[in-house]
Write a protein that binds this DNA or RNA. Sequence first.
RNA 1: GCCCGGAUGGUGGAAUGGUAGACACGAAGGACUUAAAAUCCUUUGGCUUCACGGCUGUGCGGGUUCAAGUCCCGCUUCGGGUACCA
Length: 1087
Amino acid sequence: MDYNFREIEQKWQKFWIENRTYKTEIDHTKPKFYVLDMFPYPSGAGLHVGHPLGYIASDIYSRYKRLNGFNVLHPMGYDAYGLPAEQYAIQTGQHPAVTTQKNIKRYREQLDKIGFSYDWDREVRTCEPDYYKWTQWAFIQMFNSYYSNQTQQARPIAELVAHFEKSGTADLQAACTEELNFTADDWNAKTEKEQQEILLNYRIAYLADMKVNWCAALGTVLANDEVSEGLSIRGGHPVEQKVMRQWSLRVSAYAQRLLDGLDKIDWTDSLKETQRNWIGRSEGAEMRFEIVNPTPTLPQGEGEDLSPNPSTEGEREAKPSYYTTDANTWKLLKENAKSMRLEPTEAEDLLWQNLRGLKLGVKFRRQQPVDIFIPDFVCTQKKLIIEVDGEYHNGKEQIELDVERTRILETIGYKVLRFTNEEVLTNVSSVLERIRTEIKNRDIFTSNVEVKVKPSPCGRDRVGFDVFTTRPDTIYGVTFMVLAPESELVDICTTAEQAEAVKNYIDATKKRTERERIADRKITGVFTGSYAINPVADTEIPIWISDYVLAGYGTGAIMAVPGHDSRDYAFAKHFNLPIIPLIEGADISEESFDAKEGIMINSGFLNGLTVPEAIAKAKEYIEEEGIGKVKVNYRLRDAIFSRQRYWGEPFPVYYKDDLPYMLDESKLPLELPEVDKYLPTETGEPPLGRAKNWATDDGYKLELNTMPGFAGSSAYYLRYMDPKNDKALVSTEANEYWQDVDLYIGGTEHATGHLIYSRFWNKFLFDLGLVTKDEPFKKLINQGMIQGRSNFVYRIQGTNTFVSLNLKDQYDVTPIHVDVNIVSNDVLDVEKFRNWNPEYKNAEFILENGKYICGWAVEKMSKSMFNVVNPDDIVEKYGADTLRLYEMFLGPLEQSKPWDTNGIDGVHRFLKRLWSLFFRDNNLSFSNETPTPEELKVLHKTIKKISSDIETFSYNTSVSAFMICVNELYTLKCNKKSIMEPLTIILAPFAPHIAEELYHLLGNTTSVCDAQWPLHNEEYLKESTVKYPVSFNGKVRFTLELPADMSREDVEKTTLTNEQTQKYLDGKTPKKVIVVPGKIVNIVVAP
RNA sequence: GCCCGGAUGGUGGAAUGGUAGACACGAAGGACUUAAAAUCCUUUGGCUUCACGGCUGUGCGGGUUCAAGUCCCGCUUCGGGUACCA
């Protein structure tokens, strides 16, 4: 009887549906196991042979776990929102829901043919309102939360509001877009609108003006992971930077936890490494560089100093208020100031400890030169000076001098408070109280010029800028500064003389697309005309602008250390800027020395230290001196969450007074409205702008953007646990039972997108106490890509004649892709080729040995290469079981490999052979006899191998083991039930249809899925003899069969007395004999 | 540039430091057949030998070891990821 796979497969697929074989329910009597495939997007092209690879692997594991007594959750559904359906809708006017529905149907048909054990009752689709209700719901929770850096978790926004009402931003530890500083009184005095605007700075889902990746061709913004090399991943359209008001998710707040979580999960090292790189943690210091001659940035009139700023010298007149002295005086006074700082009096020190670090809510600097003086403490923001006077101030002369000094300072707008040492030492609190009062009284100065300058995270307010560096040890080697062209500091730094050059440079940069910038690494830049002061080395260094500095990372400005950074080096060489070596013995004549090793030189107090020591010391110094602070920077950006598209989840958001508000949860789901066209409106609004009555019941306008692709796929694994629940995303009961995904299989392409976002999303839900696990995917395997294997024919140029592969060198030929489906074992079906394309109807061929042999190459599997192989065709020709086995047989799961249908006959032959073992003379035939030891050995060897191979996902060797087993049973003519039955059970995960059929032929009436996995018995595997390979100096010469239990000594003795050994020894005496019992004998002789 | 992963017959690939090439495809030869398909048997890394056998062989060059595809060092090369990330 023939192996009729078509009949068998249809029969059992029907049986499984009718008997609800794959239905899964919570069952507390069994341990759970959750196996998940990455959410597929149902594309119009359908599945090609590469897609099911991971699905087959996970299906095998699911079935294996079930046979081992686990309650297995193995669901499937569709990530149904997406750009392709919408692009198609724009072109054809067809509603994307219709195309999506059609594609899903086709997908399902294809999947059904392969015999997967999915519980289809749990299917979800992201575009269904019952599903996206929970996506919208999660978004509302994110809007209503902020991230507490103190407890490292998401907290209700109400707690933050309470904090603001009580203490303003004092002691606030919350993730935010921008550091803000205000008091409780400030907060309470603000209007509702102002407060809401401020809260957006802290919410986990927030609306803000952001630099976004704008893709004009797609008409939408894209997330960082959707862009590669300046082109959109989907479609390859150019992407430019643009500032837009967009929804974002504060993923960056979770950067550290996302990084730490990687240590707890069983993913491949390379995938974890990719995520670590993407998160991009770097430890360093952020420090402030003051600008020597800042240019006023405010328009005429506004920039005028509001405070009295008269001065005796005319030169002072023109200066804005935000610097305290002129460059020349600064140079003269800075050394004095520095030494004074190092030797404070007892009283000065006491007061400083109470003033420093924003203790009074404003920033004080000590020994800061002001005009020609060096007062003890200066608050430039409030124009307040505190002096602490010693004994000698009581002298008559000194009193006069002090009066004059105060007068001058007051004429330039400062208020001077004087205290004696004694006052400070005996009653510091009353001194502080007076200072506090004075600060309050001087509120007039709060709205000074610094509003235009971004407040420094270091808390300083003068004009200057912060830079982030991981190498604070190289501070003495800073010879210039570089700003990103987009930086707002550019205006401040640019002098009149340089204004034109800077403008030209920035215009040119804007014109270059991101892609062009990446493509040609030309060194470009322009000098701003300004200088910054190195806060440690006190040197003046030029400030440049160049596009090698990114606006989006750190502060958009860098300190350049050409000696020890290759990018700075290239820039310095190009513009002839000084390069200072900082590491002993490092040769920097040709290139920079970037390594973090060596001994410091030319570095003041850091000299003689090793680099790591110097980094630590420099950080310490920077904090001590209030120059900056130690900081950890992450590359991970917040996820832009708005898309100017139709086919996505609508936001549960409406606008009142231009501020966003969340819909009440009772209004969910907010369903996607109908539109007349899937294009932006005439005024450039997103497609939802076309929807009629797109407003709340009260008439407030609803959000026009929709959510991005990753919105719906970020928590789908939770929904599968409880897919029909209309009260919650997932019930506590279901979540406590299923917990997390035990095995997740999918492609590497999700490494920096889905797998970051869903980990973030899960952690957020974990913080809210809604899910039990902090990490969603315990173990993850990346299946390798299936590449295409293309075939070529060779046309002789200018003719319609094709020449076979091995004769083509005799002609001038053009290789042409030919459909792999009309080629078999690289032999072209000539007739099919003529019918393939009218152009080739009259093609002539030059054959070799009567055949036309095609050339081949491994390429991406794509329609344009004519190398797409459809699983339906394979199933039609060989059956699903053959397809499943062959996909696994191709090679290791994780490795990429080309699909070549050629080898499939071998796998199919194996199934036929297995089938034939059950039949004699066309009749079903098996015996109930006791198996022989040899038969038992074959079976148990296979059980052992298959069990361990499945655990290690080494499915290709499993298939080989099955082949060996069947070949051996074939040789033994074995048809004993006690051998065949366990064999069908262990084959069932791989080839479920034939296994089910054979299992029933053996007399069983229940599904093979509910059988029990057999255990192997070592007793049957024992060998009585071992064939020892005998080698001389490592070269194997012959084998010797000896009893398995023979002792090491006896093996050595027997080997040495063997006549063949004597022959190879050739009279020489063995120097040493190595015997590895059960393995090998090696005899060492002198050469 | 940086990070990760590879490199083994004509092809896909196998090999806890212990007989390299399991298993399969392809190819060659043979059996059955009027013929084809299907099935079955034999051979199949290279060189050499009538044969027994010998030599050689896992990208290249070194090393460790009784023994290296496997471990270490240095390169070449091909994939994948990422990119002026300070």
